[in-house]
């Protein structure tokens, strides 16, 4: 599904990602863990196509297509979804209008018929219920004045609405209490259908108790320092990142 090869990226000429190799087969859930500043959000934003990050080397292939050739909106239409660590507030743009524009843009690209108002609202109802999302939020401006938890839940709600094939979740657990964490995780798990793939980025192991990954990667200093199964996450929880960081330092 997603194939990242020797990916290097920098911001303002400072290299941040320094040769990432990562393959996520379809239907699998991979997790990326790593200390703060290791480049996790950078990877997510590079995948989504943010322009301020320059890809200096490597390739990203989604379902056989080169993502680096595509603008961010085309990547989204092709089925990539990135749930932001810090969702942007957009005053004056109603969430409902925005979401309908998004859903129909994606559907048009996928050669599906446009949803009319009724169909769209039905879909909203269904997906919102699963996430216990208060639909009155949808009458407000995009993310404006949402609590931390509401923002994260709204991201997963958007993900459900847009029906992507590759979901990247950037620290969706941060700022969530345990109940919200459970709801969000159930929302994500409900989307696991054997085809859709996930890249779950987190700093803490806790989230992985609820969204159980097939593979865990540890990102240190812009490179994948270690790959293992879900036990690796437990080990990191107990020992911290220090042991891996020092191995990387020694090998460098």
């Amino acid at each position: 599904m997603l194939e990242i090869t020797n990916l290097h990226a920098s911001v303002e000429d400072t290299p941040i990602l320094r040769g990432i190799n990562l393959t996520i087969p379809s239907g699998e859930v991979h997790s990326i863990m790593g200390p703060n500043g290791s480049g996790k959000s950078t990877l997510a934003r590079v995948l989504a196509g943010e322009e301020s990050y320059e890809v200096t080397e490597g390739s990203i292939i989604l379902d056989g297509k080169d993502l680096l050739d595509m603008d961010p909106d085309e990547r989204a239409c092709e089925g990539l979804f990135m749930a932001f660590q810090y969702p942007v507030e957009i005053p004056g743009v109603s969430t409902k209008y925005f979401l309908r524009a998004a859903v129909n843009a994606v559907r048009e690209h996928r050669e599906l018929s446009e949803l009319d108002a009724y169909e769209f609202l039905q879909l909203v109802k269904e997906k919102a219920a699963a996430l216990e999302l208060d639909t009155s939020l949808l009458d407000r401006s995009v993310n404006e004045g949402f609590s931390g938890g509401e923002k994260k839940r709204a991201e997963i709600f958007q993900m459900a609405m847009l029906d992507p094939k590759m979901c990247v979740l950037d620290e969706t657990d941060s700022g969530l209490d345990i109940d919200a964490l459970k709801i969000v995780s159930e929302g994500v798990n409900a989307l696991r259908d054997g085809n859709r793939s996930f890249l779950v980025i987190t700093h803490y192991q806790r989230l992985l108790d609820y969204i159980v990954p097939d593979v865990v990667h540890v990102l240190v200093d812009g490179r994948i320092a270690k790959t293992g199964d879900k036990e690796l996450a437990k080990q990191l929880e107990n020992e911290g990142y220090a042991s891996i960081e020092s191995t990387v330092a020694n090998s460098a």
Binding site: D71, D73, F84, I90, P91, G92, V93, H109, Q158
Partner: peptide, 22 residues
């Protein structure tokens, strides 16, 4: 804000219109 809209599939021009309208 524009990047956020693009990341949800909304193209350049439509995003600009949406933000200008707002």
């Amino acid at each position: 804000a524009a990047f956020y809209l693009h990341a949800r599939g909304i193209g350049e021009e439509a995003a600009r219109s949406l933000l200008t309208f707002a």
